[in-house]
Write a protein that binds this DNA or RNA. Structure first.
Lengths: 348, 348
DNA sequence: CTGAAAGCGCTTACAG
DNA sequence: CTGAAAGCGCTTACAG
């Protein structure tokens, strides 16, 4: 037998009919004799005929593939986004081509090129940390290929985005701490130059303001790289300064964990003396002791939503190019912030 | 201007030459006048010409895409595998198309079909838990499409595989516990019907035998689903039975964590009274208290290796279809198993 | 009810 | 040094 997968031609030859007829028989085209139709279908079945998507793509000028540029697949949050993209894409009959930039600008640009060469029908992108120059993205827009940004907002680009409501997430976290009775709340902040970092600081401040608690700039500590160690050091310094502290809102879970370590070592009880809330809600939040209250980001939902916006773009349903879809976070309450009474209510 | 991306035809028309010439000029074909060559290249640059990979695929009968079937992208281990696949594939100029089966047989079969339709040059697959019937995979082999299995071994299929040395990983873990002075080591085992579960039990037993420690079947506790809760319950039962225990080897990290919880609650010290070793080495192993010694699986390396085997298949370099590449695990020592003296040596 | 032809974008053996 | 033609697998407007 012939090597490789069976084609329409193979079937046509065996049946002594034309390719056109086979093609039509395969797709229930009206004017086809039941007899031919039957014969074609049987043979297709027998040889496991599968339409050649490459040929179809060339003819239809559409590949039914969507390209994804993602900083790192290994990051938990991004892996949930990928999962959402995959599920939504598959549901709509699309395949997904993934490139990770590894946070490198050059690799991001190369990947965009590869995906454009592959003629993907659309691009879902979360830019790398290094990316400042947007020329490679502008080209995509210029050539009319639908693009949707997720998680990392890109300013000045004519494409829809899906992001998380970082302001509200931070606000909720801090408000929760206040409701628990905290008055002196420290914020372990992310780098100021990232939009998300700034948004969370804003949320922190607004929550304090709305509850008539004075904002103390000394209570906002920038943790640049968000490691555990960094947070341990920052927290140790704070605790030994004699400053009154009864709550910590960390802009990421690792930092929260570092804070918890320092707090425990200094002899304070969590949450009785100092409550702690983190951000991201990784799996380990429920595993540490005490378990960590955290702001959950809807990664899976973000992936699906980005896909949906993409399909709107592809089908020109969406006229509003500048759509920014903002997804709600959810505060997941655990032991590190909840007083006994509240915990009972949650876990009953 | 014309919508969509520029083609060879567009360039040919503008320059009033034939497509053949443009094609040749673009790829430094010898017999082309420097003048034509120059003109073509300038125009290509100007219009951001990118070869249409779809057309190339159709002509070359090869897509330079490799398909990946993976149970779940959200699982940390698998996300590292994906990362390895991505990096290796990109290095070789391949794109990666990913489908997650979500552990569903039906979805796995559908994904295989989609990928075969897309005419991927090869398939990297880790089968779903549900998969018993292998017909969909046999079809792939029959149609001559290279396939490589990773992580989950499939018996009776003519295709290379990459797996982790679960026997040795377990052996190392248990031997380490013995060297720490443990004599009564419990194994929280995985389900017997999975090959990996059986291999780890074998490793556990061999390590005991080689050190002349009698094997006690009561010390092997099956934890079917590997959750934390399950391990807590199993461990509680063991501890309250009055049985002497000074070491625990859990077949997965969550179970190890559960065991630690139960041990601490019962008033024992880790590692002084009871040492604990887990399996998988997730990020949280270094975050819990005490940090958890664990057997690290080389996911990233597995992804790369699977890719390399795939390329060998594609280029017919590999004549040995039944290759099984077994990757070494690495025991990552942390606090939960190492006595003071050892820890100092490690962390100094 | 069926077939021949053209075309999607590209390459290359064959002519000139 | 350059071009016309054929072909990768498929679909569909046009004829019959």
């Amino acid at each position: 037998m012939k090597k490789g997968q069976v084609t329409i031609k193979d079937i046509a030859k065996e049946l002594n009919i034309s390719c056109s007829t086979v093609s039509r028989a395969l797709k229930d085209f009206p004017g086809i004799s039941p007899h031919t139709r039957q014969a074609v279908r049987e043979l297709a079945e027998k040889y496991h005929y599968r339409p050649n998507a490459v040929a179809l793509s060339l003819r239809n000028q559409r590949t039914n593939i969507i390209g994804v540029i993602i900083p790192e697949t290994v990051h938990f949050f991004f892996s949930t986004v990928i999962s959402g993209i995959e599920d939504e894409a598959m549901k709509e009959g699309y395949n997904v081509m993934i490139c990770q930039s590894n946070e490198s600008f050059e690799r991001e640009a190369d990947s965009i090129d590869a995906l454009m060469s592959a003629r993907v029908d659309g691009l879902l992108v979360s830019i790398s940390r290094e990316t400042k120059d947007l020329a490679h993205l502008q080209k995509v827009v210029d050539e009319g290929v639908p693009m949707v940004f997720f998680d990392r907002l890109v300013e000045g680009m004519n494409a829809p985005s899906v992001i998380v409501d970082d302001y509200q997430g931070a606000y909720d976290a801090v408000e929760h701490l206040i409701k628990q009775g905290c008055r002196d709340i420290v914020h372990l902040a992310g780098p100021e130059n990232l939009i998300i970092g700034r948004k969370r600081i804003e949320g922190y401040k607004s929550a304090l303001e709305d509850n008539e608690i004075p904002i103390n700039e000394d209570s906002i500590i920038e943790c640049r790289n968000g490691t555990q160690e960094e947070a341990v050091i920052a927290m140790n310094k704070l605790l030994s300064s004699g400053k009154r502290i009864d709550g910590v809102f960390a802009n990421n879970d690792l930092a929260a964990l570092g804070a918890m370590k320092a707090i425990k070592k200094a002899g304070f009880k969590i949450p009785e003396d100092i409550s702690v809330v983190g951000y991201s809600d990784w799996q380990f939040c429920s595993l540490v002791d005490p378990s960590l209250t955290s702001v959950a980001q809807p990664g899976y939902e973000m992936g699906r939503e980005a896909c949906r916006l993409m399909f709107q773009e592809i089908n020109k349903t969406n006229t509003q190019k500048s759509t920014i879809k903002i997804l709600d976070t959810q505060l997941v309450l655990r032991e590190s912030s909840a007083k006994e009474r509240v915990l009972q209510a949650i876990y009953k």
